[in-house]
């Protein structure tokens, strides 16, 4: 058995709302192995987004431990966390979050611009990422000249450009129609088959159906965690 890529141990996240305390996460423990395609589902407020922020190194737990690649994110400095995000995580957002005035090529190159030391083959890697999402011919287009599905593909290419260990997708189809959603999920599935670990956060069962493993959240806790035959 391979050692887990991600290991969470009794994670809690507490928000203070006036006098009362709200548990966004309440004792979450889970392990994710390299190469898995995991869907984390739950309704809004279930804690799935909080977990995703923590896995992405954007947020720190109130207690508990989160280790990715053996490194404890909870004790990292802001600078180290930034490096971790840059090298280990690829983000895909619901609203794509592309820079509207930059070309697809520029958008995809973003993570590599923040890599230290600066890689000398940025252009090659950007082209390769765009090829992987089937948009090699759209490199010079701006987001406004692309369809929603194409924009999300550019965003996925951007997440891939930094060769991350994990691709974190937060409601990647939330802003897309069902046909485009299917194509995007198929793309993620395809990328997973090429060996990339993918974690998708969603509230839609159709999206979760593409994953091999589904973890369900409710009220800050895992209520089910099971493997399935992917669609």
């Amino acid at each position: 058995m391979k050692p887990p890529l991600i290991k969470c141990n009794d994670l809690t996240k507490v928000y203070k709302m006036g006098q009362s305390e709200v548990y966004a996460l309440n004792g979450v423990s889970l392990e994710i192995t390299k190469g898995e395609f995991v869907a984390i589902i739950g309704s809004s407020g279930s804690g799935k987004s909080t977990l995703m922020n923590m896995l992405g190194g954007l947020d720190k737990p109130s207690s508990g431990e989160i280790r990715i690649n053996g490194e404890n994110l909870g004790t990292m400095s802001g600078k180290k966390l930034a490096r971790f995000r840059n090298a280990t995580i690829g983000f895909v957002f619901q609203q794509f979050q592309l820079l509207p005035k930059k070309t697809a090529h520029k958008n995809v190159s973003l993570p590599l611009q923040y890599r230290r030391p600066k890689p000398d083959n940025i252009d090659v890697r950007v082209k390769k990422s765009l090829e992987m999402v089937g948009l090699a011919d759209r490199a010079t287009h701006r987001p406004t000249e692309l369809s929603g599905g194409q924009q999300q593909r550019v965003a996925i290419a951007r997440a891939l450009a930094g060769s991350p260990q994990v691709l974190l997708a937060d409601e990647p189809t939330g802003a897309l129609d069902s046909k485009t959603s299917k194509a995007i999920m198929a793309l993620l599935q395809d990328l997973n088959r090429q060996g990339i670990t993918i974690i998708v956060i969603t509230h839609e069962d159709e999206v979760a159906a593409y994953a091999e493993r589904v973890i369900e959240f409710r009220d800050g806790k895992i209520i089910s965690d099971h493997l399935q035959k992917a669609a």
Binding site: K79, R83, N86, Q97
Partner: peptide, 16 residues
């Protein structure tokens, strides 16, 4: 603001 958030998510440090 969103651009800044994105850049941070992509690994930009505060100093960047």
């Amino acid at each position: 603001t969103r651009e800044i958030g994105l850049r941070m998510a992509m690994g930009a440090q505060k100093s960047d």
